[in-house]
Write a protein that binds this DNA or RNA. Structure first.
Length: 584
RNA sequence: GGUCCCGUAGCUCAGUUGGAUAGAGCACCAGAUUCCUAAUCUGGGGGCCGCAGGUUCGAAUCCUGCCGGGAUCACCA
């Protein structure tokens, strides 16, 4: 249950009552009405702008409306006090018992706490990673992979029907390069000294096993053959091998996408023609000559008539080419067909996760989607660069030299959970510093540790201290739900419960904004609230979780911290991070 | 030159889609451990939210124009 949504309902009911009694006009629009936690906790637990939003509609002033609404709200048993403040805010304080009872709700929901129905089972396609199948994933792909996966999890939790998808770019010229590179390794597998890998081909060792595989499967039939004899077959073989590699890389992060869509099939099944014909029918396709780029003109520029997408129709500066000089479709053309295909599969809402280097293509792709269907929507999330450090020193990666830092390097070094969490500690469109030393440090500097430590501390209390002092006490979730929670009245305890209760709201807001990093920040705040209360037990022994000679109080406290652990675990599961029960 | 992203404390960044006196961590200063992990916590100083206009009850947030930093710029994917 989202506390704020719940009380929004209460407030709207009270307003309806005022309309019915004639104190307010009928048919008021509640659209802009909000119920939020006030920024300043001294203002209470909930604040609503209802009076201010409705003032104009009701032809009255905010404070007068607030004066009508306040008594109606005070009648609610869960609302302890109501006050009108500032320009017409209505601040409410909820009764301690309301907050206390939320613990039972959380324990009852378990990992399902925070699940929402705002998504209304709407189909959403989240496409991420989609790295060219020419080698293992590197650290740059890692951020997009984690971001996309967490975003998809988040949307699922918020009630959307989510598909995790990967586009295999297996149609372009870089696949020829891959095949040529693999062919070289094939010759090498037959004992030939291939020397230095020529400039322009992929030098990485990861193609050595592909050469071996080709030798075992096809023998020596291509050793003296012309490229035309082997190119097609090796393209397919090498692409498959690279996708196996990439899937294995993703598996180390716990990522498993449901759909792997081959760009090649778009070309082979005339899907691109279909999509372009569809756009032609809508007036977005014509033949023409593009202006040369302003400012920096490429040396090999030549004016040429070609098939173009009329992006200027949708407000862009220039149109975009759909065909290359050799007549093949451009990547943009294929991408249009790909999004058209997604739409036809029922995904009217699409999200693409791209690297920063593709930022320039966002607008045209969104416009293409807009042109394809009025009810289609594409959001493109750009992941900025990850800067690698080791103890403050920058880590350079050089793809050209073939010794770039791979996803696997990162996961091997710091582990899956740390990799995933740290990648989500920045907004996707802000650059991220990743220091191999810092992220494994066991201190509050390291947010992964800080959150995990809070979770582990709770289990330490439950499994060690509580069992020591009360060996007979049943600490299952079911038993703890029955605890008498009324002793949980300290300010810090209520604050901790309130922080837990913010979780469903955070899930909904983060899902709506497509911003999974908010979950990571929320978890940090929740952990902080917990550590704070823990330390209060140092000064005030009566605030400790396990209290000698007071089993009832102990049980209530254990219920509370078990609920905190549950919310942490629930949040971490969205991020794809495993909660730990002890630190090692 | 065009487009997109960013500009918030000395540093690294949040900021609940427009709310009340703008927050956290690091760093700096001062404290807390007979007690469930001090691997933590408490308190303190520190700000023309890049600049200037506009929109309204109300702007760090939305609009416009500048300034500064980054990414990208037919025919690669």
């Amino acid at each position: 249950m989202n506390v704020f949504t719940h009380f929004r309902g209460v407030i709207e009911a009270a307003l309806d009552g005022l309309s019915a009694s004639g104190d307010l006009p009928d048919g008021l629009d509640y659209k802009n009405l909000t119920v939020e936690p006030p920024r300043d906790a001294s203002h209470g637990d909930l604040a609503t702008n209802a009076a201010m939003v409705l003032a104009k509609q009701a032809k009255s002033n905010p404070r007068a409306i607030a004066g009508l609404l306040a008594p109606a709200l005070e009648a609610n048993a869960d609302i302890a006090s109501v006050e009108i403040a500032g320009p017409g805010f209505i601040n409410m304080r909820l009764s301690p018992s309301f907050w206390q009872n939320q613990i039972s709700t959380i324990l009852g929901a378990g990992l399902g706490y925070g699940d929402s129905s705002v998504g209304a089972k709407e189909k959403v396609n989240v496409e991420y990673v989609s790295a060219n199948p020419t080698g293992p994933l590197h650290v740059g792909h890692t951020r997009g992979a984690v971001f996309g996966d967490a975003l998809a999890n988040l949307l699922s939790k918020a009630g959307f029907d989510v598909c995790k998808e990967y586009l295999i770019n297996d149609a372009g010229g870089q696949i020829d390069t891959l095949a040529q590179s693999a062919y070289l390794r094939y010759r090498e597998a037959h004992g030939e000294d291939i020397g230095q890998i020529p400039e322009g081909l992929y030098p990485g060792d990861y193609l050595v096993p592909v050469g071996q595989m080709l030798k075992e499967k096809y023998g020596d039939k291509w050793l003296d053959a012309d490229e035309s004899a082997w190119l097609q077959t090796i393209r397919l073989e090498a692409t498959d091998a690279m996708m196996d590699l990439i899937r294995a890389d993703l598996e180390t992060l716990g990522i498993e996408q449901e759909v792997f869509f081959s760009e090649r099939t778009l070309h082979e099944t005339n899907r691109i023609d279909e999509a372009i014909e569809d756009l032609r029918g809508r007036g977005f396709i014509y033949r023409g000559v593009l202006e040369p780029p302003k400012g920096k003109k490429p040396d090999d520029w030549e004016a040429r008539e070609q098939t173009l997408f009329k992006a200027t129709e949708l407000g862009e500066e220039k149109d975009h080419a759909l065909q290359k000089a050799n007549g093949d479709y451009t990547y943009f053309a294929a991408d249009i067909a790909y999004h058209f295909d997604k739409y036809q599969r029922g995904f009217h809402s699409m999200i693409d996760v791209w690297g920063a280097d593709h930022a320039g293509h966002v607008k045209r792709t969104q416009n293409a989607v807009k042109a394809l269907a009025d009810d289609a929507h594409l959001d493109v999330k750009i992941c900025q660069l990850v800067r690698l450090f080791k103890d403050g020193e920058p880590f350079k990666m050089s793809k050209r030299a073939g010794n770039f830092i791979t996803l696997r390097d990162v996961v091997d070094e710091v582990g899956r959970d740390v990799t995933r969490f740290i990648m989500l500690t920045r907004k996707n469109d802000a650059p991220l510093d990743f220091d191999f030393g810092k992220v494994t440090e066991q201190s509050k500097d390291n947010p992964v540790f800080y959150v995990q430590y809070a979770h582990a501390r709770i289990f330490s209390v439950l499994n060690n201290r509580a069992k020591e002092m009360y060996p007979e006490l049943n600490i299952s979730d079911e038993a703890l739900q029955e605890a008498d929670l009324s002793i949980l009245s300290d300010e810090s305890e209520i604050a901790l419960i309130q922080q837990c209760c913010a979780f469903p709201r955070i899930i909904e807001a983060a899902a709506e904004a497509h911003e999974p990093h908010r979950i990571a920040f929320f978890l940090y705040d929740l952990a902080s609230e917990f550590h704070s209360l823990w330390n209060k037990g140092n000064e005030k022994a009566n605030l400790r979780f396990v209290i000698e000679g007071d089993e009832a109080a102990t049980k209530a406290r254990l219920a509370m911290i078990r609920a905190v652990a549950s919310v942490i675990a629930s949040g971490l599961s969205v991020l794809g991070v495993t909660p730990v029960e002890e630190m090692r």
